[in-house]
Simulated assay, not measured.
Amino acid sequence: MLKIPGYEGGPLVQGDAYLDDPLFWPVHLGSCLRGEDAQRAAFGADWDAAMELYRTLSAEHEWPVFSVPLRSGHTIYVVYRNVADGWGVDYLIHQPAWSEAETLAVVDGHFMGPGMTWPELLSAARRSATEGIGDADARLLLLFPTLGDALLPDDAAVALTAALAALTLIEQPTDVAGMLLENQGQWAPALWRSAGGVWINDGGHSYRNPSNAFALPERRLLEISNALQGGS
């Protein structure tokens, strides 16, 4: 059985087999596909099949886990937390020297985030380690729900469109990419800034906003910033 240091719950199982299913991606991005137009564009005629896949992903007897190792030695874990009446997706980060994983973002009815800037998301997607999920498009879409960035670059839609075109059967990936970037996560897009090398934001639900009582300790914020920006 898989284990993540300090993370309670399970049974955790490797979820990589789902990545080959084109329907997995719109299901995974569902929290960012708000409104009937977005869902129709993402799922098309496959809505029933997508809902069946969702039921499989959220079954209590297995909690799918997706591991995204970074070159820094850290690993981001995407965990489908399949608790009855408490379903959600947890985004955790860990490295071997830590006693337990830290939470970057939570997607559920009591969401927490954002967890990443757009440059961090792109860096984490493209700077893969030698093991774990290595495909840059898969890494980008897996981690996309952690995004909350009010200042997106002009070419953000290009990278996201390419990932959707490569991995899904969505007929108009450009349109869906635009909708995803407009909505981003469950939270409002945040403003980010560097404070002494630490990237922080102004989000009221973010672990990376030092103004929040539940924010991560400064040393963790610095290490996470370095890891996500592509440093060591």
Rank of each mutant, 00 (worst) to 15 (best):
D48N: 14
W199D: 14
E223T: 12
V83H: 10
D135I: 05
H110C: 13
A125D: 02
L33V: 01
A45R: 15
Q186L: 15
L122S: 08
S194P: 06
S194L: 14
D48R: 15
W187N: 15
A97D: 11
V13E: 07
M1L: 12
L216A: 08
W47G: 11
A17I: 08
G203R: 07
A50W: 09
D37H: 08
N82Q: 02
V13H: 03
A138F: 05
L140N: 06
V13L: 09
P11G: 04
A59T: 06
L2K: 09
A162M: 04
A129R: 08
L181W: 05
R139D: 07
A157Y: 07
N183K: 15
A159M: 12
G178Q: 06
A165W: 01
G35F: 09
L57R: 05
L191Q: 13
R34Q: 14
E131P: 08
G231R: 05
D85N: 13
I4D: 01
R40Q: 15
G132N: 02
S211F: 12
H205I: 11
R193T: 14
A45N: 14
R127C: 06
H94A: 14
G109T: 06
G88H: 02
N212P: 08
A42H: 00
M179L: 10
G113Y: 00
A150M: 08
R71A: 10
T75D: 05
G185L: 03
T103Y: 12
E171F: 04
L169P: 09
D154I: 14
